[in-house]
């Protein structure tokens, strides 16, 4: 195969078409594949040593180009972007920590204020309760006194009325007794009747 290709070089013709000493008919039949593939392969194109200098030359050019693109532009830039992102993230995390601390402080202040307000409210409610209790006690005492006064007054009046009633009863009894005695045909002086009625009433009142 190397012979064929050397031959091709010597003739100055395309290696593929000139390799035709054993593939002429095949080469003729395949315009289609030549149209896109470029040429007709004889054996393995990878082993065609005549193309090696060309491939190696362009490969080295390419590698140098890529190396320069990477080491001069791409890699420093990507490294910078990554470092910046890392920095931003660190900063953000620190800021978040700070905010969290602030939030904790605020919460503590809030708790404290709440406790104070609660105790203040308790105090006020206690005070109010005590005041109200005092007022209530006073009012109650006053009312009790009034009630006692009224009661004693009423009792006195009842006693008066009762006494008056007793007297009346005695008079009525005496008069009745007098009338009864005289109706029965007897006579009795007032003193005797009086005594009898009084004795009787004492016995009854006993």
């Amino acid at each position: 195969m190397a012979q064929h290709t050397e031959e091709a070089q010597a003739q100055g013709a395309d290696a593929a078409t000139a390799a035709g000493s054993h593939g002429a008919d095949a080469a003729a039949g395949h315009g289609a594949s030549a149209a896109h593939g470029g040429g007709e392969a004889v054996g393995m194109p990878q082993l065609d040593v005549t193309t090696f200098p060309n491939q190696i030359f362009w490969l080295l050019v390419t590698l140098v180009a890529i190396y320069y693109i990477l080491s001069r532009i791409a890699l420093p830039r990507i490294a910078a972007v990554l470092a910046e992102r890392q920095g931003t993230m660190t900063n953000d995390v620190a800021a978040a920590e700070e905010l969290k601390l602030k939030a904790t402080e605020a919460e503590a202040a809030y708790e404290k204020a709440l406790a104070e307000a609660r105790s203040e409210a308790n105090r006020i409610s206690e005070e109010t309760k005590a005041e109200m209790q005092a007022e209530l006690d006073e009012a109650l005492a006053k009312a009790n006194a009034q009630i006692a006064e009224r009661t004693s007054e009423s009792e006195k009046r009842i006693a008066d009325i009762r006494e008056g009633a007793m007297q009346s009863v005695e008079e009525v009894a005496r008069d009745t007794a007098q009338a009864l005695v005289s109706a029965l045909g007897w006579s009795a002086d007032d003193a005797t009747v009086n005594e009898a009625v009084q004795n009787r009433m004492k016995g009854q009142a006993r």
Binding site: D14, S33, G38, G39, E40, A41, G43, M44, Q46
Partner: peptide, 13 residues
Amino acid sequence: ATSIHPMDQFVVT
């Protein structure tokens, strides 16, 4: 029969 040319794609032109 002759249309299979798997190595043509590797030819340096």
